[in-house]
Amino acid sequence: MTILVTAASGQLGRLVVDALLTRGAEPSSIVAGARDTSKLADVAARGVQTVELDYSKPETLAPALEGVDAVLLISGSEVGQRVPQHGNVIDAAKAAGVAKLVYTSAPKASTADYPLAPEHKATEELIAASGVPSVIVRNNWYIENFATDVARAADSGVIAASSGDGVIVGATRADLADAAAVVLLEDGHLGEVYELSGDQAWTSADLAAAASEVLGRDVAYTPLTTEQHVAALEAAGLDAGLAGFVAGIDAGIAQGVLDVPTGGVSRLTGRPTTTLVDGLRAALAPVAA
């Protein structure tokens, strides 16, 4: 079986390639796609095939998909452009007769109202309409997403957010990459929609407590209103649109969009997920470097 990992030069894509190899996939059975293949030199050195693959350039997609059985479509990073970009990959996968298309979506994408959901919901609908056999993996929040906030708290002693008491059931990128690798490698899973969650649920107050443990100093959670959060983000240099987007995600968290049953990842991988404290320690290493 030949597996194509899109966006393989990115943080998640690289970890998926690592996980596939760790789980016994032959390097020659993995195809790593990226817009700039020079960024995959280290991957190629491990025996993995590399190909140019740009979601916005359909002419790169058919060659990349030639002879491929399973595809991991890692959601694009260009907000506002993702639906047509993903659509290009889905169309190419259908034309190539791909037997399994795995898409990295967002929590509760088809039902929740928060800024990340619409493009993911639309992509899930495109996949369903295409008829390509598929698996949806909805990745909960990366623990690494909090590294910058915790690093700042080393000086300020504060983590401020407008997420209220909303619950997050996150995991590390490596945990989520391993779950994706399992879905790609194993028979079955077709038609499933997995809410991929960690083993531990936490709130922003719990995050502050974990930061206290990691940093060795007291860290307090300061709850903000959405308006206060937007103002603070704009004061930090974000434009109004991005500030509203970020605060809108926190508003979604407050409403429960990341509150899903625990253990989604470990049920697939057969191993516990990384704890919040350990995940933060690892994430802070590159921030501090």
Rank of each mutant, 00 (worst) to 15 (best):
K121R: 15
K121G: 12
A122Q: 13
T123V: 10
E124R: 03
E125V: 04
I127G: 03
A128Y: 08
A129D: 14
A129Q: 12
S130H: 08
S130L: 03
G131E: 08
G131V: 02
G131M: 07
V132I: 07
S134V: 08
V135H: 05
V137Y: 04
V137H: 05
R138F: 05
R138M: 10
N139P: 10
N140Y: 15
N140T: 14
I143G: 11
I143S: 11
I143C: 11
E144R: 09
E144N: 10
N145I: 04
N145F: 06
N145C: 06
A147H: 04
T148N: 13
T148D: 13
A151N: 11
A153E: 09
A154R: 11
A154I: 01
D155L: 13
D155W: 12
S156F: 04
V158Y: 02
V158H: 08
V158W: 00
I159K: 00
I159A: 02
A160T: 03
A161P: 12
A161W: 10
S162G: 14
S163E: 12
D165L: 11
G166R: 09
V167G: 09
V169P: 15
V169T: 15
G170I: 01
G170A: 01
G170M: 00
A171K: 05
A171W: 06
A171R: 06
A171D: 01
T172D: 07
T172R: 04
T172S: 11
R173M: 12
D175Q: 09
D175N: 07
L176S: 14
A177G: 07
A177S: 06
D178C: 05
A181M: 04
A181F: 06
V182D: 05
V182T: 07
V183I: 14
V183N: 10
V183F: 15
V183H: 13
L184S: 03
L185P: 06
G188T: 10
G188M: 05
H189P: 10
L190P: 11
L190A: 14
L190C: 12
L190V: 15
G191F: 02
G191Y: 00
E192G: 13
E192D: 14
V193W: 09
V193I: 07
V193Q: 13
Y194T: 12
Y194R: 13
E195V: 00
E195L: 01
E195Q: 10
S197Q: 07
S197V: 07
S197F: 05
S197T: 15
S197P: 11
G198V: 04
Q200N: 06
Q200G: 07
A201R: 08
A201I: 02
W202N: 07
T203H: 00
T203P: 02
A205L: 08
A208Q: 09
A209E: 14
A209C: 12
A209Q: 14
A211K: 04
A211R: 02
A211E: 03
S212N: 03
S212G: 06
S212H: 02
E213G: 03
V214S: 08
V214Y: 01
V214P: 05
L215A: 00
G216M: 00
D218N: 13
D218K: 15
D218C: 07
V219G: 03
A220V: 14
A220C: 08
Y221I: 00
T222Q: 15
P223T: 08
L224Q: 12
T225N: 01
T226H: 14
